[in-house]
C-alpha cells in the first residue's frame, strides 16, 4: 500500500495522540478513583493512582439486597436483557420501516418520515410523568416489557432515519435484478438489501444497545421493584442526598462500560465491512 510522505504520517499520529489523550484523561481519572481507597476524589491531577485497592470492586460485586441476593449479578442481568431486547426490537422495527420509507411510495410516506423526526423534539425530561401514567394504564409499569418498549421507541427515530439513509444510498438496480430473478418484496429486503446495509445496522444496533444500557432516569422511575432494577440504577444509588461514594460509582462506571466496548469491538467488522464485501460491480 502506498504510504504518504513522512510528515503527513507524523501529522496523523500527532492528531490521533492528542485526541486520545484528551479522551483518556478524564477516563483515567475515573479508573484511578476506582482503584484508590476512599469515597472522595483525590486532589492530584495525575491519572496514576498512588495506592491500589480493590475495595470498591468488592463493594460493587458483593452488594447484597434485603434477601441476601447479590445485587450486581441481578441488575447486570436485567440490564443485559433490556439492552439486548431493545436492540432486537429497535433494529427490527426500524429496518422494515426504513426500507418502506426509502423504497416504497404510498400516501403519507413523507409525513411518516417527518413524524419520526418531530416526536423527538419534545424534551424527554418533561415527558416522564405522562409516560408514567400511560404505562400504568397499559399495565406495563414495573416490567421489562414496558421498559424495553420505551427504550425502543426512544431509539427508533434515529434508527429509521439512519437506515433510510443507508438504503437510499444503495442503487435501485439491485432490487430490479432481484425482482427479475423472481424474488418478492420480503425476499429482496431480507436477502439483498439488508446484508448491504450492514454498516447502518451496526450503527443502529450499537446506538439502541447504548440507549438501553446506560439509561438511568426512566429505569429508576418506571421500575418499582428493586429486583427488576438495571445496573445504572444500582450505580446511581451510591449518589446520596448529601454525600456520595465516588469509589463505588467509579468502579460501577468502569464495569458498565466494558460490555459496550466489547459490543463495539464485535460490531467494528460490520461497521467497516460495507460494500467491499458486497457485489456491486458487474
Amino acid at each position: 500500500m502506498k504510504r504518504p510522505r513522512l510528515y503527513l504520517q507524523l501529522l496523523t499520529y500527532a492528531a490521533l495522540v492528542v485526541a486520545a489523550a484528551v479522551v483518556l484523561y478524564p477516563v483515567l481519572l475515573v479508573v484511578k478513583k476506582a482503584f484508590e481507597p476512599g469515597r472522595q476524589f483525590a486532589l492530584s491531577a495525575s491519572p496514576i493512582p498512588t495506592t491500589l485497592t480493590t475495595e470498591h470492586f468488592a463493594d460493587l460485586f458483593g452488594a447484597r439486597g434485603g434477601h441476601g441476593e447479590l445485587l450486581f449479578l441481578h441488575h447486570a442481568w436485567n440490564s443485559l436483557v433490556a439492552a439486548i431486547l431493545t436492540t432486537i426490537v429497535g433494529v427490527s422495527l426500524s429496518c422494515t420501516a426504513a426500507y418502506a420509507l426509502s423504497r416504497m411510495r404510498f400516501p403519507g410516506h413523507k409525513a411518516g418520515l417527518i413524524t419520526f423526526l418531530v416526536v423527538q423534539m419534545f424534551p424527554a425530561t418533561l415527558l416522564i410523568m405522562p409516560l408514567y401514567v400511560l404505562l400504568d394504564r397499559l399495565g406495563l409499569l414495573n416490567s421489562m416489557v414496558g421498559l424495553v418498549l420505551v427504550y425502543a421507541t426512544t431509539a427508533i427515530p434515529f434508527c429509521v432515519w439512519t437506515l433510510k439513509g443507508y438504503f437510499d444510498s444503495l442503487p435501485r438496480e439491485l432490487e430490479e435484478a432481484a425482482r427479475m430473478d423472481g424474488a418478492g418484496a420480503w425476499q429482496t429486503f431480507w436477502r439483498v438489501m439488508l446484508p448491504l446495509a450492514r454498516p447502518g445496522i451496526a450503527v443502529t444496533a450499537l446506538f439502541s444497545f447504548m440507549t438501553a444500557w446506560n439509561e438511568f432516569i426512566m429505569a429508576s422511575t418506571f421500575l418499582t421493584d428493586d429486583s427488576r432494577y438495571t445496573l445504572p440504577v444500582l450505580i446511581q444509588s451510591s449518589v446520596g442526598q448529601y454525600s456520595s461514594d465516588w469509589g463505588f460509582f467509579a468502579a460501577g462506571a468502569i464495569v458498565t462500560s466494558l460490555p459496550v466496548m466489547a459490543l463495539f469491538y464485535v460490531l467494528q467488522k460490520f461497521l467497516v465491512g460495507g460494500l467491499t464485501a458486497g457485489s456491486v460491480k458487474g
Binding site: A178, D181, A183, G184, T188
Partner: peptide
Amino acid sequence: PAIGTSAAG
C-alpha cells in the same frame, strides 16, 4: 435469491 413469494417472508 431463492424464488419464493412475499407471503413466505
